[in-house]
């Protein structure tokens, strides 16, 4: 846990994670074999860049602004078969990947919150977990509307 000794360090880590996500989607978008997939993945990259921006602001001002209201966990992605990212994946595949990535991030911060003793860090990880949960919900809602329209 030496890596996470300060709020700043934690935020740097989180920012790095969001940048990884940006790179991930941009990379996939470049390889995409059709326009729709490329458009979708580029949109995902922009969403992640937004998340990163939010964290940079938080770091600058020393505060993570919490999203309002309760964040529901629809668990849409939880029961789905994991898919392999690829240039010819479908939009449904892309959304499943996104939901699962956000879930992984949410779980990671939740776990970190459970093991740190420092109360400031604990609060920060909880907030970050919650933030990821809201990202996950965005993708889940989208999946529900587009691929579970009749279910």
């Amino acid at each position: 846990m030496e890596k996470f000794e300060s709020v700043e360090a934690v935020l740097d880590f989180a920012i790095e994670r969001e940048q990884e996500a940006v790179d991930f989607y941009e990379g996939l978008a470049e390889q995409a074999d059709n326009a729709a997939l490329e458009k979708t993945l580029t949109a995902f990259a922009r969403v992640e860049a937004g998340h990163k921006q939010k964290l940079i602001v938080a770091k600058t001002y020393g505060a993570v602004v919490e999203s309002r209201g309760t964040v529901v966990d629809m668990k849409v992605g939880d029961y789905l078969v994991p898919v392999q990212a690829g240039p010819n994946m479908t939009l449904q595949d892309a959304l499943i990947i996104a939901m699962k990535r956000e879930k992984a991030a949410m779980d990671m911060y939740t776990d970190l919150a459970a093991i740190v003793d420092d109360s400031d860090l604990n609060a920060l990880f909880t907030k970050l977990a919650r933030e990821e949960a809201t990202h996950k919900l965005t993708f889940e809602t989208s999946y529900e509307e587009n691929f579970l329209s009749e279910n």
Binding site: A36, T90, L91, Q92, F147, L148, E150
Partner: peptide, 22 residues
Amino acid sequence: AAIGQNVDATMAPGLELTSWGS
């Protein structure tokens, strides 16, 4: 399983598609 249908427009290359593939 009848939970929804989607557009597959990949057979018509060269057209602008929406981000949902239509």
